[in-house]
Design a protein around this nucleic acid. Structure first.
Lengths: 190, 190, 190, 190
DNA sequence: AATGAATGAGGATTCATTCAT
DNA sequence: CATGAATGAATCCTCATTCAT
């Protein structure tokens, strides 16, 4: 087993257990045991259980950001850009149900410090803010306060993924796919 | 101090602490202490910490439901009904920021058993489900799957209250008030 | 077993174990076990291992102070007062070898916070300082700085008790008793 | 960096940390880190944390012995010999406050095995024992038991250095210097 | 109903030490 | 010589819950 493998094993196991049992119901000992490493090894790589959680959160948010920027290169046409972005984000969630469930549970939970969430928000949803700003400049999107709209987007995203995770087959149905985007888009349209 | 006063003190304190520190970070001992009662008294009124939490959750959800039915009697005109419902719900949230924050945190958290959440959900979203169903029948609302739309509504509601709690003065501004409803309504419009 | 008995059992056991094994080598679990109480009971009475230690230190220092003030009422004649004080202090140490050993080990150790030591020093050795001050005023004691002389007294006391604990029979021998006082007194004499 | 440099860095750092934080509160990891060496390097040079401590103790005691024999060659006149010895010992302590503090803390502590302390004690107090023996033979010193007097000397030494470390300027003041010796000497005088 | 001392299982974290590189 | 990842036993402390008063 290579060295980075142990760290990764800890992260993978922690993700699975945090999602299935919750942060507080998951002991660091159980993570270590299921990851096949010694108890102390977890603390060799992460200073505390909280730091492990934060690392997980930031890493996964970054993964989502990468998935989006990779699969949804902006073409300039606003609504198309938004749709590609939306589809990429939801696709990622469906392909990574564990990570999606992780966000679902911890996006609003106090298990992750507010500053960590803020940090992720700014870094990741940066392009979303930009897209909205552009849309408002062009008069295509409603001129509501930016942070209200961002909160709305985030909420819509969580709601939509919750739905599609519960009904995975619907995502392959073009009608439903389109429906979810329409709800998202109409909410913001001018 | 009347006998129900102690029970109420426990509930009030628990609400405040659960919101500010989280469920797991709040010990029953700290609730008792801050409520000014003995350690064991808490367990006279509630069989367990979980039961206290559930009681809190159901009680508060009921309060919200009451606030809505009181202030938003349906008149038949769909959009007006929806707007009244929306305003009543958000007003309640702003007048009860602690309880609103409580929902924000615990609506998706594993600290409350799924069945309890389901139970509460049905009571509140009953209104909404009915309204959507009616709107679809009339061709005023988009014919997306009901549960997708309900998820969307819930997400919008949480997002909007999050925003107005952070910017309480905006709720007194008719423009922003209208904006939040438009986002909500346009998302569903046919 | 009465309630205060458990707290006392913990204190007694802690004293014995701290002396025989040292502070760090003594686990809170072993104290609880040997005291016949549950693990958590220790922390019900003392917030932490450190607080237990401090409580022990201050309590015992107070006991010594009580023993001295009880058995050595000042008569006004300086050297006689000093001798009575010295004898009372050493007698106490010999009658309480465990507590004496405790001071021997922890008077200079970092296991007890400096402020706690200071607090004890001021409260307990107060009358010693007064006696020295009086002696200097009368021209009977050397006019060295007070804190130098107090340090000296403390050192002499620890040294003498160390000797008499190792040779308990010598304390009953009037010659040695007198000798120890002479060393102590001559050191300070004008 | 020469090879002995790392060993020395470890010793220097250990001394500083043991004094400022205590033996048990200082982890081997923190020593290594602050010394700028790897975790395992410490254990290349010292088989265990205890061995490192013993090494430190014996080395420093030897240094003190060397300082005394170098600066205080006996001339035959008893009081002068004693004064030279006293001055040399205190001077060394003042010039090496860290090492002095180290003795202060660990001379009585269980962190160092009794046999190690005994071993060191003999080396240093050998001078003193001889001097006292000689003084008693000549009738210049009181005929108290030797070990009582040695304990007294040790106590005086620790007390005096404690004082002068806290008030370093006083050591340059001839009056105080003389005072400290007088306390020491009068205690033993016939 | 109210109390608060007592419980003991459980959990996060530390740390001296080892060993393969 | 030097490294630093890995270990796992040991430890302090927390906390929901019970029960005699």
């Amino acid at each position: 087993m290579r060295r980075t493998d142990k760290k990764q094993a800890i992260l993978d196991t922690a993700l699975a257990l945090f999602v299935s049992q919750g942060f507080y119901a998951t002991s660091t000992a159980s993570i270590a045991k299921q990851a096949g490493v010694a108890n102390g090894t977890l603390f060799h790589h992460f200073a505390s259980k909280d730091e492990l959680m934060n690392h997980l959160y930031l890493t996964i948010k970054q993964e989502l950001a990468n998935a989006i920027t990779t699969h949804a290169a902006p073409c300039g046409e606003l609504e198309l850009d938004a749709k590609n972005l939306w589809n990429a984000a939801i696709s990622w969630a469906i392909e990574n149900p564990l990570k999606q469930a992780f966000f679902q549970q911890y996006s609003m939970s106090p298990s992750i410090a507010a500053e960590i969430k803020q940090q992720a928000m700014n870094g990741i949803l940066g392009f979303m803010g930009e897209l909205i700003y552009r849309g408002q400049k062009l008069g295509l999107l409603a001129s509501y306060p930016l942070s209200l709209m961002l909160e709305g987007c985030h909420g819509q995203y969580l709601a939509a993924t919750r739905y599609f995770i519960d009904h995975p087959d619907k995502w392959r149905d073009e009608t439903h796919k389109q429906a979810s985007f329409s709800i998202f888009w109409n909410a913001m349209k001018a």
